[in-house]
């Protein structure tokens, strides 16, 4: 039986008229790597900070290791590792000194510091003032602080936002290594690739609600149709003249009816029929692409907006 680590029941958080978290019910289990995926303003930070005890829900209940924040705040703080969307450190304190300071705040000594420095690959920067670190190094230091107390639950709020692709990949690697220790990870991001790479469970969030919950393949197959054909014709397309086997597929056409896309179960099964029909009608194919569906496509199909778009 899987052990529940974090349980949310009917959690609501409002900012004035805005519902940042809308009656969330959620159970997260030990060892899970959970990706909270959603566009800016979805409510990810609010949700994570309520779990961290930094914000209070207006109603509903949050239990971590079976305990609420009002029951056991010091214990929970000691068992969690957190990093915010953006933290800056004491400018003129070196990496190692910063780690030592926070280690003492967790009631520990200096014994874990070497290990953590190694984990987050900052051994060479140990003497560098934090103000002189690059963005990626700073995020790794923030992660290092989160790892100091050997947390059972790690909560990272947009750890790679604003980083270049290389630094992002470095961080992913670090997180993959930690995975072996049975840590539970909750990570927020608006990069679907990040959730796809790291997380075995993905929660789609938008406007304070969880729209979908499952593994990558579960989410994709939940749509039934997992592949996609995109095309452009030389003249407007008449959907009514499609043969029977294609007629019921969800064709989406852009205005002008020349350009469009269709989700299919298997490209190799549907494409020949489609090409045959084009030839028969005397159309000319100007562009053709086929690919697997991505989380982004799923998100668009559920909300009508892309993940990285701002509304």
């Amino acid at each position: 039986m899987r052990e529940a680590v974090i349980e949310l029941k009917g959690v609501v958080k409002r900012f004035g008229p805005l519902l940042a978290c809308d009656h969330l019910d959620l159970t997260l289990y030990r060892g899970e790597y959970v990706g909270l995926l959603g566009p800016n303003g979805a409510g990810k930070t609010t949700l994570v900070e309520m779990i961290e005890g930094l914000q209070k829900p207006d109603s509903g209940e949050i239990k971590i290791f079976g305990k609420t924040w009002s029951q056991a705040s010091k214990e929970l703080q000691g068992r969690m590792g957190i990093s915010f969307q953006e933290t800056r450190f004491f400018d003129k304190l070196s990496v190692e000194e910063t780690l030592r300071l926070f280690s003492s705040l967790y009631g520990g000594g200096n014994e874990r510091i070497e290990k953590v420095l190694g984990q987050v690959a900052l051994k060479e920067k140990r003497k560098t003032y934090t103000v002189n670190l690059s963005g990626g190094q700073r995020q790794r230091l923030a992660l290092g602080l989160a790892l100091l107390n050997e947390p059972e639950v790690l909560l990272l709020d947009e750890p790679t936002t604003g980083l270049d692709p290389n630094s992002r990949r470095d961080l992913w690697e670090i997180l993959q290594e930690i995975r072996t220790q049975g840590t539970t990870l909750i990570l927020t991001t608006h990069y679907m690739e990040e959730a796809e790479t790291l997380c075995d469970r993905i929660l789609f969030m938008d406007q304070g609600k969880v729209l979908a919950d499952g593994s990558l393949s579960e989410l994709l197959t939940s749509m039934g149709l997992t592949e996609m054909i995109q095309f452009e014709l030389d003249q407007p397309m008449d959907k009514t003249s499609l043969p029977l086997e294609l007629k019921n597929l969800p064709f989406e056409l852009e205005p002008g009816l020349k350009k469009g896309q269709v989700r299919v179960e298997k490209v190799i099964e549907s494409l020949p029929a489609f090409l045959h029909w084009i030839e028969e009608r005397g159309h000319i194919l100007k562009e053709l692409q086929s690919r697997r569906m991505t989380l982004d496509d799923l998100f668009v199909s559920m909300t009508g907006r892309g993940l990285t778009e701002d509304d």
């Binding site: 961290e52 005890g53 930094l54 010091k74 214990e75 703080q77 000691g78 957190i82 915010f84 953006e86 933290t87 800056r88 450190f89 004491f90 926070f102 705040l105 967790y106 009631g107 602080l145 107390n149």
Partner: peptide
């Protein structure tokens, strides 16, 4: 301002 305060307060200190 740097959110360092809340990071420190989020420890058992």
């Amino acid at each position: 301002m740097k959110k360092l305060l809340r990071r420190m307060v989020a420890t058992p200190m």
